[in-house]
Design a protein around this nucleic acid. Structure first.
Lengths: 170, 170
DNA sequence: TATTGTTATACTCTATAACTATA
DNA sequence: TATAGTTATAGAGTATAACAATA
């Protein structure tokens, strides 16, 4: 989650019978775009994000606010700059995100003793509780979704590849 | 590409020496969020999309307009509804996208003889030429980026997994 | 002189609802 | 009655530049 915007409604029809009109046409999938790895990555992400959006709605969170809260709740003590880089959001968006969470008393800003320009983001007690509950839902939902890959080896291979592509240190 | 919005500037610093401040902090990567497959998927996509944005700027295209043009240029004869589902964009956004490309004489609308409500999108000759040139750049860029995975087996496993997650028919 | 957080602003993208014409 | 395309609009997300405080 986080990064990029949510993309639309429910997604990923789970019904067994496509009945009438919701089937994507083979003609489009047979084009080069339908085989372009970057397109597949984008489309998979859009579906994942839509699912995450649904899961997190119960907690009044979105992918990005959940990510930020979860990092704070993990006592990572991130500065806003670090969050900006990690979540790939503009520093001014981080301000807005933290403002939202702070209004709900889920996080607070604390001056960094080592650099008084910087502020670290700390989860409050209720922030930790919400993050824990949301995390359980997210983990469960992730498992269900990635179970579309039936083999654990396939899933591990995917996760490893994503890590390589996502993590600049890799 | 396509689906979701572009996410920021250049991304994916290729320099060998991170020099001073651009290194993401290990503390954040060590949290559960940094290991969440959905987060990795989102972040990988954000980096991919930023790269695609840079590549396509030369042609006056973005990920979504490129995808639409490439599908039309492949003679897939998509209706706007099909494009909406395939690209996961609202029908009204498809209207706007086609309007843009039509103003540049890259595509045109044609009534569907089998259903006069529907319009199929056709690439013009100059649209085909632009799509071909853009496609070459995209393919080259994709190859370079996914070469972060040195093993062809690993890349194939990733592509296969993404296809499963992205394609509702899978 | 450079960096952190902040504010302000313009722009793009997204979601929704209504309308028309066909089916 | 339902669907394809269109229009309009409000809201959310994004990119940029400027500013005060601190390094």
């Amino acid at each position: 989650m986080t990064t990029t915007a949510p993309s639309r409604e429910a997604a990923a029809a789970s019904a067994t019978a496509p009945s009438h009109g919701s089937m994507s046409s083979d003609r489009l999938w047979d084009t080069q775009v339908g085989k372009d790895p970057a397109f597949l990555l984008a489309r998979a992400n859009a579906l994942s994000l839509a699912r995450m959006h649904d899961v997190l709605a119960e907690y009044g969170l979105q992918a990005r606010s959940y990510s930020l809260l979860a990092i704070a709740a993990a006592d990572a003590r991130p500065s806003q700059r670090e969050l900006s880089e990690f979540l790939r959001l503009d520093p001014s968006q981080i301000v807005a995100l933290i403002d939202q969470l702070e209004r709900r008393d889920l996080v607070r800003r604390e001056p960094d003793p080592n650099d008084r320009r910087a502020k670290v983001v700390i989860a409050t007690e209720s922030g930790r509780e919400l993050a824990a509950r949301a995390r359980d839902s997210v983990v469960e939902s992730d498992q269900g979704w990635f179970a579309q890959l039936p083999s654990a080896d396939d899933r591990d291979a995917l996760f490893s590849a994503l890590r390589t592509l996502a993590d600049p240190r890799a």
